[in-house]
Write a protein that binds this DNA or RNA. Structure first.
Lengths: 258, 258
DNA sequence: ATTGTTATAATGGTCTAACCATTTCTATCC
DNA sequence: GGATAGAAATGGTTAGACCATTATAACAAT
């Protein structure tokens, strides 16, 4: 019913003011705030306190702090970076496993594909086909262009998300992909056959989206992601059994506590 | 191909070290770090720099800084708070509209319900029925217990998410609800009839989940959320037309620029 | 014994005043 | 005209002091 009554700290007040100014549009993206020495005069605070506030704003992704003359606090365009990071922290703090992430992604990409099928423009399809061509040639080249294929694959999924015209789909999907890739990349090494299958999956998906068949698009996308997940989990299981690379290193913890 | 080569700042190094220690489990949740005066000796840095690092860690949600004797930097259990906040920033920076959010929620809750139907335990159902009873009595009481009903409604949705046993569903859903409510709450005033309809929707949903009918659960959940969205949008449209409460206040911007 | 009060000390919060490091711009030199 | 060195602006860091908040202990009052 009640909230904890905690004293408002000075730096928080500063954070709140600048944040409000940015979100209200009084400070536009790219605009450079006054120098720290000027700001501290305006707020009538010390530089240290001001800098704590700026650090918080930087961590929130609202400003970017540049060095040197002509530098300063630059108002940033808010992007998905912070969502990605906080999701990453959740994962790394053992609250979320890769399996959880994969399951979530399956449903998410299904919804995205269905929505994309309803909203896609000719330009969206064009973009997807373009990327698909790149993916095809990569897949044909086999292992050598593996890195590029993975990147292109990701781009295709993001292009589908873009076709939904809903930025939240794009944000969340980008965050999920980022986090999945960061943790899977170690043992990502599909066989050539699987690589090509993967690309053919996508081809069918894009066809469905072009035909505005939301049901089919959703189904195909789910299946595509599901297959990928199953494959990666199998891989991960093998790697785990073979190298035991995730065993906790106990000794490390002994001497290094504060 | 290459990354920008920027100098590593001292406070970042400190952030990295403490973050690593927390995520690796060398610092456990609830544990109190040494005092600032001790830490600054350990890292051989000034207190100001250390405090900048601590502020960043606090903003990341990794520590909580308590005042007074016995206070200090307490290692926190990472939760969804940061995801919620960064999603909120995306929304407020005009990148995401409430409509986008509502659309996303529709698909999300559909997936959640379907998954919950597959995994639900007896305990999950019990919990849901309990909450449903509260909601029913609130709905019967009408406008007086409106606040409580909304809270209970939210709790039910979260209970369904909990039944998926996938924390990422819970995190994202909590973030979405938080953000939707924060921006809708101004004109949330459903009619008694709608309140009751809402509760009956949920009743059917829970039945489907109990019977492990994933398809039906997903469909019902989608429809439930869709109806709510349509209703709220209609409400918002009315409010907009009537009061024009969202018109940009131009004069405000004039004198207050830095 | 319980309750209220006060003193104490530990800790984070803030301030001041320097100096260091990086970057851009400019004047100078060849 | 181009390279080079200097100047200036700006963020990054340091040091030392003092203020504000809070837990604890000691003490007093009921």
């Amino acid at each position: 019913m009640f909230q904890a009554a905690k004293p408002t700290k000075v730096f928080q007040e500063v954070v709140a003011q600048i944040e409000e100014a940015i979100l209200a549009g009084r400070l536009e993206t790219g605009q450079i705030l006054p120098s720290e020495r000027e700001l501290k005069e305006m707020f009538r605070i010390s530089r240290g306190t001001l800098r704590e506030a700026l650090r918080v704003l930087e961590q929130k992704g609202l400003i970017e702090i540049r060095l040197g003359v002509g530098g300063g606090s630059v108002v940033r365009a808010v992007d998905t970076g912070r969502v990605t990071e906080s999701l990453g922290l959740l994962i790394r703090s053992q609250k979320v496993s890769l399996q959880h992430l994969a399951e979530f992604r399956e449903g998410l990409e299904g919804n995205i594909a269905a929505q994309a099928a309803k909203r896609r423009t000719a330009g969206d399809i064009c973009k997807m086909r373009e990327l698909l061509e790149v993916a095809r040639s990569c897949a044909a080249a086999g292992r050598q262009r593996r890195e590029e294929l993975l990147e292109t694959d990701k781009q295709i999924h993001l292009a589908v998300a873009a076709a939904t015209q809903n930025p939240i789909y794009q944000s969340i999907l980008a965050s999920i992909h980022d986090n999945i890739h960061r943790y899977y990349e170690r043992f990502l090494s599909m066989e050539d056959r699987e690589l090509r299958e993967n690309v053919e999956d996508l081809c069918g998906l894009i066809d469905a989206i072009e035909e505005r068949d939301a049901d089919a698009a959703g189904r195909l996308s789910r299946r595509h992601v599901h297959r990928f997940n199953a494959y990666m989990q199998e891989r991960a299981r093998q790697a785990e059994a073979g190298t035991d690379m995730h065993s906790p290193s106990i000794d490390q913890a002994a001497g290094e506590r504060f």
